[in-house]
């Protein structure tokens, strides 16, 4: 491994961009291997582009056969973040559970009575409107967004930002009726059906969750599936 390659892997990680190190593994009798770094932005130019892209998306390393050689694709992806919009009861259950899954959780709510550190010990809080806080937070492909306030004035600002960003997961709390009205408002903002199809609503897998903690489990299970499942199977499973 070249030091320059390792430095590039680390720099891309710091910039929250996915990157792969592709290695032709040494054959049993040969003591050599070749290696290249493939950045997410350059993936289409690589002979293994489609496969590498899928590994980057799922954040999963692995081996494959190519041209009679065994190739190892090691991915380095940024830490996955979860933005909870709404410092509500469900978020109080979601935040610690998400942390156990290794997600970097942030809770946003302009209502300072809700976004109170006493309600969310050790959780980074953004006591601000989405329009003010999200440009600096910088939504990206390794960020999941859960809209939980039941307040269109707050949720909609975050939803517009999430739909304009490549977030891998967008979930919105509320009934089908509430969601239909939400989609109408987004359509008025110029979003197409394909954009609206990205929203998981009602939020969470259908496990008949009742309590805030149970709803948190259903939301987190849906986020894990969105992240880890292959796209075809994800569509079937998530019912988005």
């Amino acid at each position: 491994m070249r030091l320059a390659d390792l430095a590039l892997l680390n720099a891309e990680y710091d910039a929250r961009r996915a990157v792969a190190l592709v290695t032709d593994l040494p054959a049993k009798d040969k003591k050599s291997s070749t290696q290249r770094v493939v950045r997410a932005a350059d993936v289409e130019d690589d002979p293994l582009g489609g496969i590498i892209a899928e590994h980057l998306r799922a954040g999963r390393s692995g081996t494959l056969e190519h041209d009679g050689r065994e190739v190892f694709i090691a991915v380095r992806v940024p830490p996955v973040r979860l933005l909870l919009v709404g410092a509500v009861h469900i978020s109080q259950a979601l935040a610690p559970m998400a942390a156990m899954l290794g997600l970097d959780v942030t809770v946003l709510d302009p209502r300072t009575a809700f976004a109170d550190p006493k309600r969310f010990p050790n959780v980074p809080l953004l006591p601000a409107w989405p329009d003010d806080a999200l440009p600096a937070y910088a939504l990206d492909a390794f960020t999941a967004v859960a809209l939980l306030t039941h307040e269109p004035r707050i949720d909609d600002q975050a939803l517009v930002a999430a739909l304009r960003a490549p977030c891998f997961y967008i979930g919105a709390l509320g009934s089908r009726k509430t969601h239909a009205r939400r989609c109408e408002r987004m359509a008025e903002q110029g979003f197409a059906q394909g954009d609206l199809d990205r929203i998981h609503a009602p939020i969470g897998l259908d496990i008949a969750a009742v309590s805030p903690a149970e709803i948190a489990v259903s939301v987190l299970a849906q986020i894990v599936a969105a992240r880890r499942r292959k796209p075809m199977r994800a569509a079937a499973c998530l019912g988005a």
Binding site: Y13, R76, P79, G102
Partner: peptide, 16 residues
């Protein structure tokens, strides 16, 4: 999720 392994590669760079 991956934090510890990421720290390790950072450490490898600084060692070298």
């Amino acid at each position: 999720m991956l934090a510890s392994d990421d720290d390790i590669l950072r450490e490898a760079q600084s060692w070298r």
